[in-house]
Design a protein around this nucleic acid. Structure first.
Lengths: 227, 227
DNA sequence: CGGGTTCTGTGCGCTGGATCACATAGGCTG
DNA sequence: CAGCCTATGTGATCCAGCGCACAGAACCCG
């Protein structure tokens, strides 16, 4: 099992979250973490569930979001390789704040709650790393709050697409429905704006996919620098 | 100076954030913290400033919020005695995420950045306490995000007022402008809803002040339980 | 007590986006 | 390849909330 652990430790160190930790800490985390796989569309957990632990994505895409009583969706984030999630409910012991659903086949590492909390108490460097992570999450959410109160649907949509382009490249794999839930508008509104932008040559459209041609124009639409 | 420190330590222990810490840690924090006073309407820091440290409110009210390029306001939170703020920029070393302005005469303790970070590294229990705080902030922001995407202006306004009532009592001291920036709507919209609610006997209105008569009706308006 | 200043109350027109209702078109599956 | 399911495209209509304009009303300060 020792080779396994070493392999896991070196895999972990490719993850930005764990790479800030010293070798010894990494080894101890490797000792408790378990591989976990999700098929596309598989539900990992739902808002309100009790926490089983922390997840680190190796490969794939996870949608973090919620659904209201009428079925309307809000996507908080789309996470990919190298991202961590599930830390809030893990740390405060309360229920999950959102659903986590695989958007495609996804491989993760899973750190069981009990083991990880034990490690956290014995190794302060993990706590510091988590503080960084939570601060980044807070900054992101605050920025999103500002976007929704200050900016139009069009600008918000442009910003969300820009985020996807930045993270995953100029070819964005997302349905208009998904874009809508990211920007907090309806699918129809998304379609109308995308049609305008296509007419202006900024992007081209496919089923479940869009391709950015003119990144500068998209940035202009996103009003980078505003607020 | 020893009496001073002991007095500060015991004052700190009345604050929920510090009360979770052991006496020794409390004493060390007391040794580094300095009293700080703000007059009503005084600006403590602005979004974008570099962090000088962490603040703990003893008495008074601090508005945490931002203003966009056109002067429109967004209030993220109204904090009072026992609340902590300024932790994000402190912890990640980046700039302030929002403005902090005194709404009335306010007394605080100030923990200078450098000293506090030193303490944080040497005493893991502070890190755990901060993790709790950041999780609470995240949960609050996530809930607010859901509110803005799923709920109407009326419901959001009712929820924000309900929060003020819960924290500060049935007589709410806030102008309609301030309520507007809390709910993310215009002042006119706030007024129109308040007039309706007044007509229905749910509350009464004064200049910069409103008084809740029927808390149950307000809760119904806030659709508690929805989402 | 008088004049400014900041709040509140309210009418009215405008509009961004939601909602509804289909038509069409890809892509998967038996 | 036929059928089905899911995603896209688009018109028509509606309406909550915004923006503007202005009239009190309350407070504050000299």
């Amino acid at each position: 099992m020792n080779e396994g652990r070493q392999r896991i430790a070196s895999l972990l160190s490719t993850n930005p979250f764990f790479s800030g930790l010293v070798q010894d800490t990494l080894d101890r985390i490797a000792a408790i973490c378990k591989p976990h796989h999700l098929a596309a569309r598989e539900v990992l957990f739902l808002k309100g569930d009790t926490s089983d632990g922390l997840y680190a994505i190796r490969r794939g895409l996870i949608r973090i979001g919620t659904t209201d009583d009428l079925g309307q969706q809000m996507t908080m984030n789309i996470l990919g390789g190298g991202d961590i999630f599930g830390e809030i409910a893990l740390l405060d012991g309360r229920s999950r704040t959102a659903d986590a659903v695989a958007m495609e086949d996804t491989d993760m590492f899973f750190l069981p709650r009990h083991d990880f909390l034990g490690l956290l108490k014995s190794d302060p460097s993990i706590a510091l790393q988590l503080l960084e992570l939570l601060c980044a999450r807070l900054r992101d959410l605050i920025e999103r709050m500002e976007e929704t109160t200050f900016l139009s649907a069009e600008t918000r949509l442009a910003r969300r697409i820009l985020m996807l382009v930045t993270d995953y490249g100029a070819e964005v794999h997302a349905s208009q429905e998904e874009l809508a839930s990211l920007a907090g508008v309806t699918r129809e509104t998304v379609n109308r704006h995308l049609q305008n932008w296509k007419r202006d040559g900024i992007l081209s459209l496919g089923r479940g996919r869009l391709m950015i041609h003119d990144l500068e124009d998209l940035k202009r639409l996103a009003r980078i620098g505003a607020i």
